[in-house]
Amino acid sequence: MTLLHYTAFSTDPAGGNPAGVVLDAAGMSDAEMLAVAAEVGYSETAFLMSGAADGAIPIRYFSPQAEVPFCGHATVATAVALAERVGPGELTFATPAGVVPVVVEQGPDGLRATLTSVEPYVEAAGDVSEALALLGWQSDQLDAALPPRVAYAGARHLVLAAATRERLAALEYDFDGLRAYMLEHDLTTLQLVWRESPTVFHVRDPFPVGGVVEDPATGAAAAAFGAYLRELGLAHPPATIQLRQGDDLGRPSRITVELRDDDNRVRVSGYAVPMEPA
């Protein structure tokens, strides 16, 4: 087993969201993969498995505490790691959430990957007062134009929109309480957002179910958020949305979300670069 270290959604090794990448995980057990992810300590580590079917490469994702069905930043990191070895082009990953095509291209600042999500959906969030209490947020601090919803594009995320950048920046929450709440409601992260403009959003993603306080970049949540914007009529395809994440953690990340008018799925793009192990 060779463990690679990449950061996704940045061209700077000091930015983006770090991911472990194992390109040769054939024969590893669940316990072994979880142990590697826990030792690495990143929000996710991706493992490429053997047994490709119809050209789709099996891939699995483990946080330090659990397996997750889909991880966007680790997918981008893995695709770029492969492209560095075999050249840019088209890849297809068979994730636990479904088939995810990825195109890797040479961009002006390095290799850039674009993943296409599984079929997304958006559903009512119900009463979110408990989630707000665990975050220390008040209901009058929400943006009424962006109502709470649960959005899915490979994993489920509760979308909550802050009315001000200051509310988004001041993030302190009950880790154990929010983890229990998210497990009860089958949530992978909370997608906390603030709208700078119709096409630019600042986002933060608590990830206590994975044993991580916060993700610096969350591709799966970005895809789900694209579906959210389309469902609520806040973005009309064709549309390109820019997400700014990680600034409050000192690891700036830049995520591009694309909505097309001929396909319900969501495209998520970003750079990835190798990094030295912590």
Rank of each mutant, 00 (worst) to 15 (best):
A163C: 15
G233P: 01
E231M: 06
L178K: 09
F201H: 03
L190V: 06
E196L: 13
D176R: 13
R230Q: 07
A222F: 05
G233W: 03
V209M: 07
F225W: 01
R156W: 05
M182V: 08
T189V: 05
L158S: 08
A221L: 01
E172I: 06
R204I: 15
A170S: 13
D186Q: 06
A180Q: 15
F225V: 00
D205S: 13
A163N: 15
A155P: 12
E172L: 15
F201Y: 12
V212D: 14
P208L: 11
L192G: 01
L178N: 12
D176G: 13
R165V: 13
G154E: 05
F225A: 00
D205G: 05
H157M: 04
A180M: 10
V200F: 07
F201E: 03
G219R: 12
L183T: 10
R156K: 04
H202V: 15
T199I: 09
L229R: 00
E231H: 04
L171I: 04
A170E: 14
V212W: 03
S197F: 10
L178A: 04
A153P: 11
A169R: 13
R167C: 12
H157G: 03
V209K: 10
Y228H: 04
E231N: 05
A221N: 00
D174T: 09
G219L: 05
